[in-house]
Amino acid sequence: MSFLWAIIAGLVIGLLARLVLPGRQPIPLWLTVLLGIGGAVAGNALASAAGVRDTGGVDWIRHVFQVGIAAVLIAFVSPLWARRRA
């Protein structure tokens, strides 16, 4: 069941990251999900290192880290994907 939640979280985080980035990202949905999962894992690690992974309420800082890292990953991979397709 945790595998399913990882895919759902990766989809949500990846789509939010694409919304944050300006312009169009020519990557498929499956790659958005994979990069969202990567952003979620790296964001959790960064939040743990910063000591803000588990707070009393909603972990907004952790979510900002997750979406931010996913946005960086998407911004890095999008031009590579577009160049590969050309």
Rank of each mutant, 00 (worst) to 15 (best):
T55C: 00
R83I: 01
G36M: 09
I13Y: 14
L21S: 08
S2W: 14
A86D: 07
M1H: 04
L29N: 02
A86Q: 06
G38F: 14
L21H: 08
V52D: 03
T55D: 01
G39L: 05
V12H: 14
G56Y: 02
V41H: 05
A86R: 10
L34S: 03
V20F: 06
S78M: 13
L19I: 08
G57P: 05
I13H: 08
V20H: 05
G23D: 09
D59G: 02
A82E: 08
I27E: 10
I61V: 04
L80C: 07
A47D: 13
G14V: 00
I69R: 04
G57F: 10
L46V: 11
L31D: 04
D59E: 11
L15F: 12
A75L: 11
F65P: 03
F76T: 12
R83H: 00
P28M: 08
P79Y: 10
G14M: 01
L21R: 05
T55A: 09
R84H: 12
G10W: 00
A71Y: 15
S48H: 08
A9D: 07
I74T: 15
I7C: 03
G43K: 04
A47Q: 10
T32K: 07
W30E: 06
L73Q: 06
P26R: 00
A71I: 15
R83E: 06
A75D: 10
R62T: 04
W5Y: 09
G51T: 00
S48L: 08
P22G: 10
Q25I: 01
G23Q: 12
L46M: 12
I69F: 03
R84P: 07
V41Y: 14
R85G: 11
F76P: 11
S2T: 12
P28F: 11
A6G: 06
R84Y: 13
R62Q: 04
L35Y: 00
S48T: 11
P22D: 14
V72A: 15
A9F: 00
W81V: 13
Q66P: 06
V58E: 11
L15T: 06
A82V: 00
G36I: 01
A82I: 08
R85P: 03
A40M: 10
R84D: 11
A50R: 02
R18M: 06
N44G: 15
I7T: 07
A70Y: 13
I13F: 14
L29T: 02
P28K: 14
G39C: 04
A50K: 02
V58F: 15
L73D: 05
Q25F: 00
R53N: 05
H63R: 05
L46G: 01
H63Q: 10
P79A: 10
I13R: 10
P22R: 13
L19G: 06
I69G: 01
V52L: 09
R18N: 10
R18T: 04
I8E: 07
T55W: 02
L21D: 07
V33P: 03
